[in-house]
Design a protein around this nucleic acid. Sequence first.
DNA 1: CTTGACTCCCAAAACGTTTTGGATGATTTT
DNA 2: AAAATCATCCAAAACGTTTTGGGAGTCAAG
Lengths: 336, 336
Amino acid sequence: MANLKQLAQSLGLSITTVSRALDGYSDVSAATRQRVQEAADKAGYRPNASARRLRKQRAELVAVTLPSEPGHIGPLHFLDMLSGCAEHLAGAGLNLVIAPVPHGESELDMCRRFVDGRRVDAMLLVRTKRHDERVEFLQSRGFPFVTNGRTESAIQHPYIDGDGFSGFHAATLRFHRDGHRRIAHVGGPQEYFFAHARRQGWEAAMRECGLATDLDLQQAPTEQGGYEAALALLARSDRPTAIVCATDEMAIGVLRALREVDGGLSISVIGHDDLPIGAFTSPALSTMRMTGGNLGRSFASLLLRTIAGEPAETLQELHAIEFVDRDSHRLPPVAA
Amino acid sequence: MANLKQLAQSLGLSITTVSRALDGYSDVSAATRQRVQEAADKAGYRPNASARRLRKQRAELVAVTLPSEPGHIGPLHFLDMLSGCAEHLAGAGLNLVIAPVPHGESELDMCRRFVDGRRVDAMLLVRTKRHDERVEFLQSRGFPFVTNGRTESAIQHPYIDGDGFSGFHAATLRFHRDGHRRIAHVGGPQEYFFAHARRQGWEAAMRECGLATDLDLQQAPTEQGGYEAALALLARSDRPTAIVCATDEMAIGVLRALREVDGGLSISVIGHDDLPIGAFTSPALSTMRMTGGNLGRSFASLLLRTIAGEPAETLQELHAIEFVDRDSHRLPPVAA
DNA sequence: CTTGACTCCCAAAACGTTTTGGATGATTTT
DNA sequence: AAAATCATCCAAAACGTTTTGGGAGTCAAG
């Protein structure tokens, strides 16, 4: 309704003075500033966002690309993270737009639209691949971005990631200490960095223990994927006595398979992510999670700092993984 | 990098002609249009979003407010819906920004910021209350919005909602037909329309069956809330033999309480929402869900149509509820 | 030869803000 | 008394696009 021009006119002042009064510049008298402030409050004046964005050459927006596998939109804990991120970005005047990949368009095309159209000031990339074309594109444009998950890019970039290698390494060693000798790995597609790192951690531990690494399956990182992998494992003559799962969703699918085939928890299982729902499955799911507190806040902070021009090397967070011990990992190795 | 001015200069044309060529106006020759199109493609030209927004007086943005209860950000199936909505909005050139309520600000303040700053063209409201101040504000401003869930507002507004009354009415009658006589209701806060409507459905059915309506508890619509309500019910001497839960999350909490107290499914349970995880709980959760297909697409369509000025009365969708029968509702009434 | 219609193009205005580079008096310093 | 400083204000430019309201030039009809 009210814009700067009308406000200035009603006050008998210039647009410049009103603008600078509201922005708290020192070259407007205290009396005038107060008069302007009161009039602005009364009129409910808010600067037009589009106009300010054009003038300041900032979109005041950050986009997060959502990988849209049919019917399944990334890990379920995403929304909590995004919400936290959006809240902290808002504190700096930025809003978060969610950008699922439209039908018939690639994630790369979408990045191009957002970057070249100056629709956003930075991008947040999730589900990074080891070789990620989005990362390469943004780097070639010199456009600010932060990833959730590392890549194998030669050039450094800001990221937040959990140390999946160490986590899965430790989990596997722990199963070994508990007496397990046939420890399977149910992983996700290896082009994803997180899936690869976790598998590498499992594999390294197995080698250190002198165990074979043939109990290893890859599936879609969903309940269904875990379910199918578990069915395949249960059909083998050399069944595992423990299963390390790349994600909680896969682990939940594994638990379901165990129930259907063996009627209950016949094999130790551990997942990763600490989905809230894990506490409510039967048996309650043992899992791992990234340390480091409020993830959304961290992403927001990294985004702001990369927009501000801080070098990538100072914007990389690798968080340790901790165990969340519940009931699904305690089975003795002879149970099968 | 490239803007209209540079593009025009390199082509020896005016800004106007280049703009109109790219927009497909008929007053530019086919030859020129093609020449312009090729140059634009080659330069990777995309119109500056802020500039277009200012000129066209449209923000090309829609905001969805996320209620941020501590640690729990609305139903878990929100993200799927939002993703679908964002994807369809993108088809019309609109992006979806997620707007969690910042610390120390009310949802109303946030609406005000978005509306008066012309940051968005419409708003999507979730978790509506029976008397919702956000709705009242937007109505007073004549600002386009769509709600997920009805309100008791005197003025019509666009919404999408499930017929929770009928769903809970039918579910309660079904339990009665199966022989249950002590049917409890575990509901959410009654200021929310959905929670109230579902409770009303249960209550109406109980009255029709001549049953008392004292087995009725309200809690936060979370696993924890359901868990606590169930503990209270299980401690009573006149335990229920069936429980109707306002949400799947509450139902999952109820199942956990049953496991802990009785060691398994001792009471029939049904939830609402059809969370994907429901298929993986033990026992698999019987539930209800809204019919009507792709919810996100429907929201996008309603948003676009309300922006276009269609009257509210033609933009209201009330969808039937259908049962999703799994294993948690099949217990005979004498089991307790 | 004039008129009107048609095709193709363009200069300038407009959107609402922020910022630049002074301008105007009043006050202090030299 | 002149010069410098200070406090307060403002006109105009700029951001990059879309849209308005024509302006040339060409061609056919009168």
